[in-house]
Design a protein around this nucleic acid. Sequence first.
DNA 1: AGTCCCCTAAACACAC
DNA 2: CGTGTGTTTAGGGGAC
Length: 685
Amino acid sequence: MMVESASETIRSAPSGQNGVGSLSGQADGGGGGSSGGGAAGPAAGGAGRDSAVGADSNGEMSPAELLHFQQQQALQVARQFLLQQASGLSSPGNNDSKQSASAVQVPVSVAMMSPQMLTPQQMQQILSPPQLQALLQQQQALMIQQLQEYYKKQQEQLHLQLLTQQQAGKQQPKEALGNKQLAFQQQLLQMQQLQQQHLLNLQRQGLVSLQPSQASGPLQTLPQAAVCPTDLPQLWKGEGAPGQPAEDSVKQEGLDLTGTATTATSFAAPPKVSPPLSHHTLPNGQPTVLTPRRDSSSHEETPGSHPLYGHGECKWPGCETLCEDLGQFIKHLNTEHALDDRSTAQCRVQMQVVQQLEIQLAKESERLQAMMTHLHMRPSEPKPFSQPLNPVPGSSSFSKVTVSAADSFPDGLAHPPTSAAAPVTPLRPPGLGSASLHSGGPARRRSSDKFCSPISSELAQNHEFYKNADVRPPFTYASLIRQAILETPDRQLTLNEIYNWFTRMFAYFRRNTATWKNAVRHNLSLHKCFVRVENVKGAVWTVDEREYQKRRPPKMTGSPTLVKNMISGLSYGTLNASYQAALAESSFPLLNSPGMLNPGSASSLLPLGHDDAGAPVEPLPSNGSSSPPRLSPPQYSHQVQVKEEPAEAEEDRRPGPPMGPPNPSTAGPPEDRDLEEELPGEELS
DNA sequence: AGTCCCCTAAACACAC
DNA sequence: CGTGTGTTTAGGGGAC
């Protein structure tokens, strides 16, 4: 039943989009419109947004089918990496190192569900940023290794083929071979270039140390030295912490990212190299050379082996022919994989695969860097507890997402291959984790709730993600509505504005109209915590924090350990878990970190008096320019006392009668609350 | 097993 | 009449 309905909504999504568009247009007319309509210029905005979204990131495939195929293949491989990663995490072998790294809870959630069953996205959704970070590190390391191996294999493969061909060539009329050989050598050359390019990239990113000789030497040397896992932690360190202070502060805050990062990685190794080089790449060309730590043993070929031969079968892509021994294999190789068009084509494909992986790697690296940068920065930001709101026992969810799931991330839906993934395969709602796995149906947040991750921070962190990826947010409607309302200066929204907030903040809601709107209305009516206030211009909805909190406590009580663990990550000395959670929940801590959100998004989330906030209706122009990020951490930083804040805003309307006069402060012209109302920070003070 | 909570669907009333 | 808003009821599922 639910499944059906769910799929229905999904199916209807594309067309529904228009619905949203028109709706938002109207909405703006209705809500904002009444308030001196001019302000909004809404229609346009709505249209713009929609088109942006609707423009189906779905993108088209590259013209060449081949390319498409290759991309698929590459993605496949990348996916495998991720899965390997996952299984590695939970594999008994790694357990030790993992346990020693108990600082991070990564494995807990992951290990519980057989990783093989998870898609990379799902995994990411389950993990918290720090966890993800750790995971990513491993992933990166692994990918790099894989890439290196690829290169190696390929080169050997090519080399071998070349040799074979040359041998064969002796017996054949040379003319016949001439062309092919030429082409083949060209490919070899390409391979080399590719490889060097890749290494350069890696080098640039500081992920790989490379000896000059290696870099320059064409064929012969293989980039075996490439990445030594043990170096990674160092690199991370170097990366994120330009200056010591940053790092120090990190530790002081009790959120020792570097530490966790190091330990969380399955290859925990004593930090060795330590040049805290400036994390930026070296413009002067000075490579971040780390002593190439090559374990000679790792990939040495045993005498009787062949790179294309393993486990008794031919490793030529798509071959897998069984060969009893090396001799037989060689024979097979010479016959089946001789230098012909097919082999050449396969080679080409393989090159593409490698190329894709490179790209992927580059992306991932970039992302990782951004994440690292962000995470390192965060601790130095104003404490997570800030907002005046009262303690809200964990409201919503956990969701771990962060980036990646939809590669669309940073740059929107720019990349054909990746972006296609988002719309086509509805990503799993972040945070749903295991629960959602079983039930294909609607994801219920229970799971997330227990982690008591604050919705606001969660949202803040993944704001861009939800905005762009067609992922169902792991929050309950109630918490989302509340969030929407609280984000506005005067803590009240019309239904329409709520709708708009939903569509603005979540790509998901841009697609499925009917159901969620109904749900929103339903929630508004159903929950006591949402209070309808008659306004001159209509009705607005407000949040009664007390009520809202009333219904939560029971939930939070569950799984104290998890909660604790989660929180300990952010530890604030003495505050108890739930209290912290509450604080976090009600605050918008991360919004203040300049690094992480672009001005646009930040502004859209800022809870306090703010032009932007007042005009939630305004869908788009978003990009930053609109409002000077008014970051005043101190502003948020206290008021832990429950009374204050709700007293201010909510209290009034709470009592029985729906409050005749809408809002105390705005007794005057009600309609303009969007505009004039914005007495900055008024409610706080 | 019972209870909560959440979600979706749908019917209905009202106002514009 | 169509649409948007609100309210209510019903039923299913997950978590505790």
